[in-house]
């Protein structure tokens, strides 16, 4: 299911064991479930009931077979109800296309996301620039339904399509000096009107980073799709990060460069307001943003008379899987 063609790297080497086991469990579950026995056998993602008049994003031809072959990773997916498709593609923080929530869906429609190339740089054995198609070639895609918690105290449940970042990094042979991973978004003010703004306090291009163990964690996803389709441009097409236990701004969009570094990389929001946005940015109800509380969140979509206020969980509810990464750290200091 993961790798169809013979590949120099074995699946057992690139896939962390827990995931590998999860997948087996899932396949066993699949075999036993008549309800999931769909035509073609491989397509285990239910046909989503997408809003009829909302635009679809099929993505490039080379992505089609991958998207169709993707199955849901039930073990790593939440059972919560995903936000309606139309909300996921029209409520975006993607300041490269404007600061309004609906700006990206209005202004990113002509954003060119194919062909796309990504540079792998820094402390790796095999640096280089790759066409996205070639970069993704050995990786199978699966669906993961994750909670996304924005630092602005709203949240959504989103069915992503992607694969673990760790699988990709391993292929390029991180050296012993690789302690962090730094990511860069495309810089293209012609296509991204927000980057040309005179009044923004952000420096472009947008940069983000993870510690190596965070990057290798099986929950850390490189997404190429959502709701069974390719990523819409406003959601960070063609290729973005999804780190579900951190505030949404860590999940950098439209990545063109991945660099493994020895020292902690600069990150955009932290550089702009270091007292408000930390490097780690783990979801933490105990540590407020200086201007607002993080103890609760509004789960979107909300209707007017039920604001859908829920308590925010440490690590966005992924504490069982990731809290050990930070054992011994003062999370108030390293917010």
């Amino acid at each position: 299911m993961l790798i169809k063609k013979p590949d120099p790297i074995k699946a057992s080497e690139i896939t962390p064991e827990p995931i590998y086991r999860n997948r087996r469990l899932f396949m066993q579950g699949l075999a036993g479930s008549a309800a999931l026995a769909l035509s073609g056998g491989a397509a285990a993602i239910p046909a989503y009931d997408l809003d009829a008049d909302a635009p679809r994003y099929p993505g490039p031809d080379w992505l089609q077979s991958k998207l169709r072959a993707g199955a849901r990773n039930e073990a790593l997916s939440t059972a919560e109800k995903p936000a309606p498709y139309v909300n996921v593609i029209t409520h975006n923080n993607f300041y490269e296309f404007g600061t309004g929530k609906q700006d990206p869906s209005r202004k990113a429609q002509n954003f060119k996301t194919d062909p796309w190339s990504v540079e792998i740089a820094g402390e790796v054995d095999k640096p280089g620039t790759y066409a996205l198609e070639d970069l993704l070639q050995p990786h199978g895609i699966e669906e993961r339904i994750y909670r996304l918690r924005c630092v602005e105290a709203w949240s959504m449940v989103i069915p992503w399509m992607g694969f673990p970042l760790g699988d990709l990094l391993k292929r390029f042979g991180p050296t012993s000096r690789a302690k962090y991973v730094a990511f860069t978004t495309l810089l293209d003010p012609e296509q991204m009107p927000g980057q040309g703004g005179f009044f923004s306090t952000l420096d472009w291009p947008y940069v983000e980073g993870l510690r190596m163990d965070e990057a290798m964690h099986p929950l850390t996803l490189l997404a190429v799709g959502l709701y069974g389709n390719a990523l819409p441009p406003q959601n960070g097409a063609p290729f973005r990060l999804v780190v579900p236990w951190k505030y949404g701004f860590k999940s950098i969009k439209s990545i063109v460069r991945i660099e493994l570094t020895e020292s902690m990389p600069v990150t955009t929001w932290n550089q702009t307001a270091p007292n408000e946005y930390g490097f780690y940015a783990n979801v933490n109800p105990e540590v407020d943003h200086p201007r607002w509380s993080q103890a609760t969140e509004r789960r979107l979509p909300s209707s007017l008379f039920s604001p859908n206020i829920i308590d925010t969980k440490p690590f966005n509810g992924y504490g069982d899987q990731v809290a050990s990464l930070y054992s011994g750290m003062d999370l108030r200091k390293w917010f």
Partner: peptide, 12 residues
């Protein structure tokens, strides 16, 4: 608001 045309976060 009545036309439900205020996006995912009508409250905001």
């Amino acid at each position: 608001a009545l036309a439900m045309d205020l996006g995912a976060d009508p409250a905001q």
